[in-house]
């Protein structure tokens, strides 16, 4: 009795046979009276149903239990418990379903673990050679042309940033919960990032909230880096408070971005002028938006009379979102 349908079939057959036997026994006391007739019609069908019900009850109950357990496991897997598995009992269809579920869950778990390990190692694997290059530049000492050395240092920083962006993009997708939740002084962070450039003007008020300082720094740096590389001076950064929301505006005076292109700015890998000399993976703005959303905020583009504006809003008293 391995298959579910044969089991059902046999149970039904059994209960029908039992019923037929009972019926035949009952026929013997049929004397043609009305009472017996009424009894016949009122009892035969309920008795038939009851017979089938009683015979199949243990079977369906067990079946339902197993399906429930399977459902629980599927739910658990969906909720993120990658180690969720079901016990495989018997050899029927449900057992096979449980087996395939376990196989699929195992495969998902393997893939996710591999992905995580890759992410964890990739940073190290990619940065060790970069550290070598940096050391090599330092070891060249005074013999090297200082200009060329500075250029090399710039290239290393750019590569480092690119690695950071690519790894961050996949990390933000893969890891739901925030790594750090600290008090961040947004004005101080903006001042620090603006000081990396010669003539970026900062205007702002104090705004402090909890968040991941590394991500918020990356957000500001990407916007400033874009204004510097794709926009035109002067660059202005404003930090404002509107009620319980902080608004960070990075404005430059470059030519306004046409509407049809502006619609795609925040898409990953989108670059307006992919063939141009300005390098970049096109991940910057998509990261800006992802980081803003992770902190319960949003990132927008806005064209102004003076040029291009990128606006990030961040609620000030909301804890970091975990999704």
């Amino acid at each position: 009795m391995s298959h579910l349908h044969t089991r059902f079939f046999l149970t039904l057959l059994g209960s029908l046979a039992a019923f037929a036997l009972g019926g035949i026994a009952f026929m013997h006391i049929d004397d043609g009276s009305r009472v017996v007739h009424v009894v016949h019609s009122f009892i035969i069908f309920p008795a038939l149903a009851l017979c089938i019900g009683i015979a199949t009850y243990p079977l369906t109950r067990r079946l339902l239990r197993r399906l429930e357990r399977l459902e629980q496991a599927v739910d658990a897997l969906g909720a993120g418990d990658l180690s969720a598995r079901v016990a495989v009992e018997g050899k029927d269809e449900v057992a096979r379903l449980a087996q395939s579920f376990n196989r699929a869950a195992g495969r998902i778990e393997d893939l996710v673990v591999a992905h995580k390990r890759l992410l964890a190692n990739a940073s190290h694997e990619l940065r060790t050679p970069l550290a070598r290059v940096r050391l090599a530049v330092e070891l060249m000492g005074e013999s090297a042309d200082p200009k060329r050395k500075a250029g090399l240092d710039g290239d290393i920083a750019e590569l480092d940033q690119l690695i950071d962006e690519i790894l961050l993009a996949s990390r933000l997708d893969a890891v739901a919960s925030p790594d750090t939740d600290e008090e961040v002084d947004l004005l101080a962070l903006a001042a620090e990032e603006c000081a990396r450039y010669r003539d970026v003007r900062l205007d702002g008020v104090r705004a402090v909230r909890r968040g991941d300082p590394r991500l918020l720094r990356r957000l500001l740096r990407n916007l400033l880096d874009n204004a510097q590389r794709h926009g035109a001076a002067p660059i202005e950064v404003r930090l404002m408070r509107c009620g319980d929301t902080a608004e960070i505006v990075v404005a430059d005076h470059g030519p306004v971005i046409p509407d049809n292109q502006a619609a795609h700015l925040f898409e990953p890998f989108y670059r307006r002028n992919a063939s141009g000399q300005v390098s970049g993976a096109g991940l910057g703005l998509s990261l800006v938006r992802q980081i803003a959303r992770r902190h319960g905020g949003e990132a927008h583009y806005r064209a102004t009379a003076a040029g291009n504006c990128f606006v990030v809003t961040l609620p000030l008293d909301v804890p970091v979102l975990s999704a």
Binding site: L187, E192, L202, V205
Partner: peptide, 19 residues
């Protein structure tokens, strides 16, 4: 002339850079 460690924040004061 272009400080990166102690930064003036106009109208607010000074900040010592973390990075």
């Amino acid at each position: 002339k272009h400080p990166r460690r102690i930064i003036t924040v106009r109208g607010a004061g000074y900040v010592f850079a973390k990075a």
